Computed example of a mutant assay.
Amino acid sequence: MNDHGSGNGELREFLRSRRARVTPDQAGLAPQRGTRRVPGLRREEVAQLAGVSVDYYIRLERGRNLNVSAAVLDALARALRLTDAERDHLFDLARRGRPRLRSLPPQRVRPGLLRVLESMTDIPALVVGRRLDVLAANRMGRALITDFDTLPERERNMARYMFLTPAARRLYIDWETGARDTVAALRLYAGRNPDDRRLAELIGELSLRDEDFRRWWAEHDVLRHSHGVKRLHHPVAGDLTLNYEALAVSDDPEQSLGLYTTEPDSPSEQALRLLSS
């Protein structure tokens, strides 16, 4: 995680990675003769599209602290065709100074939410907090993925599970997609919380121990994972296609309730019933 400690470095690498992904054709620029030496857009093309001087954009991409206005950041987001999550990440990176690592207070799940969780007897559910820590799971959630309660507290984490637990690669049929999404969600959190000491330790360990994580972390993708479809090959229930929904917890924006549901009268619903029994 060679760049995690530097906000300027993060901004530089993020802008470069997004610029490389937009072709002049996608940006609506007129075709030019000659070979292009860079993938995607040139710096001067981004500056033109965003309505800023080339010198200003070059200094910004080099990570110079220029007190960028919201209007300029919005123009850059449009020029680089950023998603909503990427736009938010750009704002986070541009607005922060050099972070000082600190230990954040531990998160706790409200007793009332825990009772709601345990009352869901047919739906796998879990509460995920900062840096994708698994704060709680109901009986079905533990049966579907793994029993995080048996792990040391620092190891109850979805990113650790995805990359450091061999069973995860067998459980997720689309493991690479899920793992990339996990990295992108972690990158989005890192933009908002660059001073989280536990996050720095987590990224450092995953980068050291897993080549896939190290490679995908360097791509600077970001994702707000609010819903989707998960395909699992469960050792007990067999193949499952599950709809995933992440709901924000009202009194703690850094907690979300994740629910896994199936289509009515589907083979996956029957398989989930088998798991429940």
Rank of each mutant, 00 (worst) to 15 (best):
R102D: 07
R100N: 07
H225E: 11
S69Y: 08
L144E: 02
V134K: 00
N8K: 13
A159P: 05
D122S: 13
R154G: 00
L164V: 01
D221S: 11
A137W: 01
G28Y: 13
S6N: 11
P105W: 15
I173C: 09
Y189I: 02
N138E: 02
L90M: 06
R100I: 00
E245S: 13
L208M: 11
S268Y: 02
R198F: 10
G9T: 11
I58W: 00
R156P: 04
Y244S: 11
V22M: 10
P124R: 02
L240R: 04
H227P: 01
L199H: 14
L49C: 08
R87E: 04
E176D: 13
L242C: 08
P253V: 04
P24Y: 07
R95L: 01
R160G: 03
A71H: 07
L49N: 08
A246F: 01
Q48E: 08
M158L: 15
L164C: 05
I123M: 14
Q107C: 12
E245I: 02
V229W: 09
R209N: 11
M1G: 14
L188R: 12
Q107W: 04
E153S: 12
R12H: 13
R273P: 01
G258H: 14
M1A: 10
T182H: 12
L257Q: 11
G9N: 12
E263V: 05
S266A: 05
T165R: 13
T182P: 08
R197D: 15
M120G: 06
V46T: 12
A136C: 07
L275F: 04
S256H: 06
W216E: 08
R214G: 01
V54E: 12
D147R: 03
V249L: 08
A159H: 06
T146H: 07
W216D: 05
R37K: 14
V222A: 03
A200Q: 10
P24G: 08
P264I: 04
H225V: 05
D25Q: 15
R197M: 06
Y244N: 04
A168I: 03
T177M: 11
E201P: 10
W217I: 03
L208N: 11
R16G: 15
V116T: 13
A179P: 14
Q26D: 15
E211Q: 12
R224G: 08
L274V: 06
L60H: 10
R78G: 02
N67I: 02
R43P: 10
R78L: 05
E245L: 12
